[in-house]
Write a protein that binds this DNA or RNA. Sequence first.
DNA 1: AATTGAATCAACCGCTGCGAA
DNA 2: GTTCGCAGCGGTTGATTCAAT
Length: 235
Amino acid sequence: MGRMPCCSTEGLNRGAWTAEEDRILKAYVQIHGEGRWRILPKKSGLKRCGKSCRLRWLNYLRPDIKRGNISDQEEDLIVRLHRLLGNKWSLIAGRLPGRTDNEIKNYWNTHLSKKPLTISDLNDKLNDDGGSRSDVDEPPSSGQSQGPLDSRRPAEPRISEASNEVAFNVDELVNLPAILDFDDLLDSGSCSDGIITSSQIFWTPNFSAHDHQDISDFDDLGMLMDVMDYVICPP
DNA sequence: AATTGAATCAACCGCTGCGAA
DNA sequence: GTTCGCAGCGGTTGATTCAAT
């Protein structure tokens, strides 16, 4: 049994959306709300596939879309979230109000993926604390599991007075609220204005593929992301 | 001014997960 | 337990814009 196409392509417009199509779609969603994308074209009279309508709305017409350049702070967050989650663009986008998964994916592919690897920089910083971490040179990927967590990781998040940086491993991250009082962190002067930037906080470099596996095992990425919220925007 | 290659980003495609029947 | 339809996701494509020559 072959899979049915998502919609017939006969008589449908393709390519760039016209202003009139945008107007119709916007008006329809404002009246009927989001969802039911498959029936939207028929109801609205748009000659577009439902998927195309959904994409156009989510990526372009939604009222809360933030357009324009990605700020340094946003880029910072994208880098850290990507290190944490891999190519989970929708999850990353969910942490950047007004930004879409498509926009972040494009931004990553055109800007960040071409940047020189900074993991080695992080390694250098970690190595300052002693111990070889030659096994952590690989950039993060959403690939296969590579084995158990590194037992040599520090038992505690480390705050370097010299560099104002903090390192966590994944177990620590998941249990973060219990093991690290962020008020203390704030009081330590490691961050200002309630925002901790990546120059002040980073994940351990081998927090990558195999850690993703472990995170999924927790079956509670939401909790993890709440922690991220806590880190990014302490109450 | 014209050409060309690179960069950007909107849109498409195919697959997966999930809920309802 | 299985099938089906739908929404959503991530990878990829291709049109457009920009910069260099």
